[in-house]
């Protein structure tokens, strides 16, 4: 599946050609880094709020209300810009172990976030996050650090 013709066909689309051969590539790369920085920064405050909120008795809903819109908007922008970068070298990226790790870690981070959401939905609006939520927030930071590392590593594997 990874060495399928599909990835090559994707690479040969006119859109991929236009991005890869023009100033659009550095533009999308810059926007990708910016969107990713905003997403991780919002995630940092959310996770810190969930970890520290346990001791400072900050309501979960307040922390979530502050940061979830930022996370979703910047995550969407990261996906769009990342997708634009991906199609320019799709066949090489899917075989790149660093890229595979990045996708795997993003999947794990997403799953962790989903479980966190489900557990937090049960809490009342004034409740502070529990021990499990604090651990999941810590795991989230760890997993996203792994995503950053593997993302940087992609360019070092030719």
């Amino acid at each position: 599946m990874l060495d399928s013709e599909f990835w090559l066909q994707l690479e040969y689309t006119s859109l991929a050609g236009a991005i890869g051969a023009t100033w659009l590539f550095p533009l999308f790369n810059s926007l990708h880094v910016l969107a990713f920085a905003f997403m991780l920064a919002a995630l940092f405050w959310l996770d810190l709020g969930l970890m520290m909120g346990r001791w400072q008795q900050v309501p979960v809903k307040e922390t979530m209300r502050s940061w979830l819109p930022w996370i979703w908007v910047s995550f969407s922008a990261s996906v769009v810009t990342g997708g634009a970068l991906f199609i320019t070298r799709a066949s090489a990226h899917v075989l790149n172990p660093a890229f595979q790790w990045k996708m795997l870690l993003m999947l794990a981070a997403g799953l962790n976030m989903l479980l966190l959401h489900l557990s937090l939905r049960k809490l009342a609006s004034t409740d502070a996050p529990g021990t499990l939520a604090a651990w999941q927030a810590g795991l989230s930071l760890l997993l996203w650090s792994g995503v950053v590392l593997s993302g940087r590593w992609i360019g070092h594997i030719v």
Partner: peptide, 25 residues
């Protein structure tokens, strides 16, 4: 080691994320 450059760049990018968190926001 091959891991050193991406690791150092990750530290740099994590610094960028922290700056976004505590200056831009």
């Amino acid at each position: 080691a091959s891991v050193v450059p991406p690791l150092v760049q990750t530290i740099h990018l994590s610094g960028v994320v922290l700056l976004t968190a505590c200056v831009i926001f």
